[in-house]
């Protein structure tokens, strides 16, 4: 009877070697890949939103900025269309001292299963951003990006722990005014089309759509290759402010799907500074990242 150790030794002795033909095939295709991918894409840029998402606690929140992103991009690109003056939309947002909206993110991973996140986003040009998210109905996660203190704080109440990390100068520059600038311009620079009008929750709106995969802003722990991407933004004709955003991104040969919906927007909201100051109970533990 062979002992288990013998089996282990045998497994370790398994040894296949690549053939010259295989080596040639791999190297040829890799060089071709490198030549094709010399031009960096938006996905390769470590923007603030990606950095924020790299924190386990706070990564739920990053998609919340997509609406702002889309609008900045439109401002860079677009002339006015009939009804909604797209060039005015960003100015309308900038004139709003604060905003609130709801966001739902559904990640469908062929291997890891489906995860759904729901959150409420509070934004203030003066104080920063706060996002209250739920991993499940019992697990509240709060994220604070403070412009005044220059810190990013994540609080996971179910675990009684929090993270605290400084925002770098570049990150702060991007946060101020809630304007992701370059990264966002890239997203829209890939092109969009107008969708015309439709009524959403009784409000007449006009929309635009992005379908170029390079417009996707996805964060994942795994390497991501975007197969397809569709994002729609709808803006109220009367106010020139967004009321609905939805994106669906399919990645890695259809094995990962990211679905994001943002709605229930409230604009021109006066938010108090206290809304952006985390109240961390004394028995919570600081988690080192």
């Amino acid at each position: 009877m062979r002992p288990a150790e013998h089996i282990k030794r045998l497994v370790k002795k398994l040894n296949d070697t690549t053939s010259a033909e295989m080596d040639q095939r791999v190297l040829t295709d890799v060089l071709h890949t490198l030549a094709e991918s010399e031009k960096p894409t938006a996905l390769t840029r470590p923007k603030i939103w990606r950095n924020i998402m790299q924190s386990r606690i706070t990564k739920l929140a990053a998609a919340a900025v997509i609406v702002i992103a889309v609008l900045v991009g439109i401002n860079q690109l677009g002339g006015p269309a009939s009804g909604v003056a797209w060039g005015e939309v960003v100015r309308n947002i900038e004139a709003s001292p604060g905003f609130i909206f709801r966001m739902k993110q559904i990640n469908n991973d062929k291997e890891k299963g489906i995860k759904e996140y729901n959150m409420k986003v509070y934004g203030s040009a003066e104080y920063g951003v706060r996002m209250d998210g739920y991993l499940d109905p019992q697990a509240l996660v709060q994220t604070y990006a403070s412009l005044k203190e220059g810190v990013l704080i994540g609080v996971m109440h179910s675990e009684k722990m929090y993270t605290r990390q400084p925002l770098t100068g570049d990150q702060l520059a991007e946060l101020e005014g809630l304007d992701p600038k370059e990264g966002i311009r890239e997203m829209l620079s890939v092109g969009y089309r107008k969708l015309g009008r439709k009524t959403i929750d009784g409000i007449e709106a006009e929309g635009v759509e992005i379908t170029n995969p390079e417009g996707a802003r996805i964060s994942s722990d795994d390497p991501i290759e975007v197969d397809s991407h569709v994002a729609q933004l709808w803006v109220a004709v009367e106010t020139g402010l967004p009321i609905f955003f939805e994106s669906k991104t399919i990645c890695n040969n259809g094995t990962k799907e990211f679905h994001n919906v943002q709605d229930e927007f409230q604009w021109n909201v006066e938010l108090d500074e206290s809304e952006f100051v985390p109240n961390i109970p004394a028995d919570y533990t600081l988690q080192e990242n």
């Binding site: 095939r25 295709d29 890799v30 960096p40 390769t44």
Partner: peptide, 24 residues
């Protein structure tokens, strides 16, 4: 199976080349 195994290794390296600058 040899051919499938070679294909898998090939695909892993090509994907690695494509994504090397992006993952942590």
């Amino acid at each position: 199976e040899q051919v499938e195994a070679e294909d898998v290794v090939h695909d892993v390296f090509v994907s690695f080349a494509r994504l090397a600058g992006q993952f942590r």
